[in-house]
């Protein structure tokens, strides 16, 4: 195997990098891929929480880089998916504990054993970003349909181009079809118009995402969730499949139906 290193980044914080990383990891594992997720957000780790693996951490990324633990030992195997692993971030250190060169070496060690190595990049454009991007074969840029998030994504794409890692592909997260229809939210076309890069996936806003992240069960495991379905589709596209985009109109209809059911049921 020669694993592909995919870095998930955004520039702006809070747009859904960690949620995207966790869900793509789980979705790829469900599709039979051997996957390792690396949390590169040293000092602010939370990929472990979203995956429900917080209580299993013994060693972390910095322990491996500084030679206190073997890579094999530090990897945490997911309880439900034996082919899904996590290398957690250190919580008590900062980004300077690891260098871009360390990350490249680490990924080279992992490549022979995995199909996909997904790196959850910290917010920002400093050392943590450079660490996460250095080993990448491909970069996914997560953004929201908001002017500020798109602005930061644009900055990131510029930096990726300068590092010859660009331009990357876009994951447009938390889109609300109703608001787009009313012209209150940027449409996918508006976003690509500015960024000029390909969209890998569009993930609709879904209020089930927060509780699922809190409980450590990524939304893509919920077959009734459109966000979950969207992540599943993105995983298939990452594997090279051609999967048509879900229509936003259709999802609007779905939300309306769902709304009716809820309001009916709740009285």
């Amino acid at each position: 195997m020669t694993g592909k290193v995919v870095t998930i980044t955004s520039g702006k914080g809070g747009v859904g990098k960690t949620t995207t990383t966790a869900n793509l990891g789980v979705a790829l594992a469900r599709l039979g891929q051997k996957v390792v997720l690396i949390d590169a957000d040293i000092g602010l780790r939370n990929l472990d929480i979203v995956l429900g693996l917080e209580n299993r951490i013994v060693y972390d990324l910095v322990d491996v880089v500084e030679g206190r633990a073997k890579l094999r030992t530090a990897l945490i195997k997911h309880k439900s998916f034996p082919d899904l692993y996590l290398l957690p971030a250190a919580q008590t250190r900062d980004k300077t504990a690891v260098s871009p060169q360390d990350m490249i070496q680490l990924c080279n060690q992992l490549r022979p054993e995995f199909d996909f190595i997904l790196i959850d990049c910290p917010a920002g454009i400093e050392r943590g970003f450079r660490n996460a991007v250095a080993p990448a074969d491909e970069v996914l840029i997560v953004t929201n349909p908001e002017v500020s998030a798109v602005r930061d994504a644009d900055r990131i794409i510029g930096l990726l181009e300068a590092e010859r890692k660009g331009p990357g592909r876009l994951v447009l997260n938390r889109i609300k079809p109703d608001m787009v229809r009313k012209g209150e939210m940027l449409a996918p076309d508006d976003v690509t118009d500015i960024l000029g890069i390909k969209i890998l996936g569009i993930v609709p806003e879904d209020e089930n995402v927060v509780p699922s992240s809190n409980s450590g069960i990524p939304i893509t495991l919920n077959d009734n969730s459109r966000a979950g379905k969207a992540f599943h589709n993105i995983a298939r596209r990452l594997m090279g499949e051609r999967v048509p985009f879900m229509s936003l109109e259709e999802s609007g209809g779905f939300f309306k139906r769902l709304g009716r059911i809820f309001s009916g049921g709740g009285g």
């Binding site: 644009d154 510029g158 000029g196």
Partner: peptide
């Protein structure tokens, strides 16, 4: 295209064959 965060300073004229994005 000049993306957000990019600054170009020139002692002469500047011609851009692409967009100049916000930022």
């Amino acid at each position: 295209t000049l993306r957000s965060g990019r600054t170009v300073r020139s002692a002469g004229h500047v011609v851009v064959f692409g967009d100049v994005n916000p930022g």
